[in-house]
Amino acid sequence: MEAPNQSAVKDFVLLGLSAHPKLEKTFFVLILLMYLVILLGNGVLILVTVSDSRLHTPMYFFLRNLSFLDICYTTSSVPLVLDGFLTPRKTISFSGCAVQMFLSFAMGATECVLLGMMAFDRYVSICNPLRYPVIMSKAAYVPMAASSWLAGGTNSLVQISLAVQLPFCGDNIINHFICEILAVLKLACADISINVVSMGVANVIFLGVPVLFIFVSYIFIITTILKIPLAEGRRKAFSTCSAHFTVVIVFYGTILFMYGKPKSKDPLGADKQDLSDKLISLFYGLLTPMLNPIIYSLRNKDVKMAVKNMVAQKCFTQ
């Protein structure tokens, strides 16, 4: 129930680096460059895997989805961050904040599920190669990818619907670069226990379950690879899943680093830690989307060959 004499919040103020204005131009350039690398790298990866018929396989279909997802994920927040570095008063409307939270939350949950789907694809490829065309047919892998998007979107809709129904009636200052849902919930003038429980359940489903699924899949994959008698055969088998394995380590490694690092108990260091927490959260959202196309380009000979062919064809036509 809302307290008397309170006015509903119509917009939010994003603090960002307001307390450190000298850093804003430096981080504007750095984040802009990272964003351009994300757009270019993932855009090229999508273009290459679509244009080369040899890459029209389930693995590269999932990879196209992952690249498109990374573009959407960063685009849902980076323009807002960049605008905040240039605007004296960094405000965002209540509805704009809800949309931004929905998109970023949906993309994050979708990526967790999609990485699990990609692990299953690699499991079937290594452990059941003869049945791979049947198990991973188009009738299977397209609905698998679609279900990842549907699950992520549904979860985000539930979380954001619960958040926007809360009364926001006092402080409208978000101590972040974007509308990060935990930072927004702190401003609600009502009990948020339902939101906390709901997000806890979602974390188990969209973080814990995919991690367990990926872990079990790679136990079977590694066991199967070790049974291959020839070293060359083992190397070729592992090369088909090394890029995905590396992406999984980067994705979940950054999550563990961000949420697992100890909190400072020194009150005098609270401001510095607060700044570092915000910057780590910001760069976490950029690191994985930037590294994904680089990892798949460097660790996958088919992608490297397709990129070389595309560049050669482009130069030849000119």
Rank of each mutant, 00 (worst) to 15 (best):
L230T: 11
D266P: 11
A270Y: 01
C241K: 06
S242Q: 15
Q273C: 00
P267F: 06
A243K: 01
G233P: 11
D271V: 00
S264L: 00
G233D: 10
L268N: 09
H244Q: 14
I228Q: 14
F251L: 05
F257P: 02
I221P: 08
S242I: 11
S264I: 05
S217Q: 12
L230V: 06
L256M: 09
D271E: 04
S242V: 14
M258H: 06
P229E: 06
V216R: 15
G260W: 06
R235C: 14
R234V: 00
Y259V: 06
G233I: 08
S242D: 10
F220G: 07
V250K: 00
V250T: 09
K263I: 02
F251G: 03
P267V: 08
L256V: 10
T240Y: 14
A237W: 01
I221S: 05
A270N: 01
C241I: 06
T223A: 14
P267M: 02
F257K: 02
F220T: 15
S217P: 15
P267N: 07
C241T: 13
V248E: 08
A237R: 00
A270S: 00
P262H: 04
T223E: 12
E232W: 13
L275V: 05
H244P: 02
T246S: 12
Y252H: 08
P267E: 08
G253L: 10
F251P: 10
I255R: 01
R235A: 14
Y252E: 03
I219Y: 14
T223H: 06
K261G: 07
T223I: 08
P229A: 14
F220P: 15
Y218L: 11
F245E: 01
Y252L: 11
S276P: 01
A243P: 10
P262S: 12
P262Q: 04
K261F: 01
F245M: 13
R235E: 10
T254M: 05
D274A: 04
D266G: 04
K227Y: 13
L256H: 09
I221E: 08
I222G: 02
V247W: 08
C241L: 10
L275C: 00
K265S: 09
S217R: 12
T224D: 12
I249Y: 04
S276A: 10
F215W: 13
K263Q: 03
I255W: 04
E232H: 12
V250N: 05
P267C: 11
T246Y: 03
C241V: 14
A270D: 01
F245P: 03
P229H: 09
T240K: 14
V216E: 13
S242T: 12
K272V: 03
T246D: 09
I221F: 02
F245G: 00
P229M: 11
L275S: 05
L256I: 08
Y218V: 01
T223L: 09
H244W: 09
F257G: 13
S242N: 10
D266L: 12
P229C: 05
L268M: 11
R234N: 14
T240D: 14
R235F: 13
T240R: 13
F257H: 10
K272W: 03
Q273S: 01
A231E: 08
T254N: 01
I228L: 15
K236H: 12
G260N: 05
Y252F: 10
I255P: 00
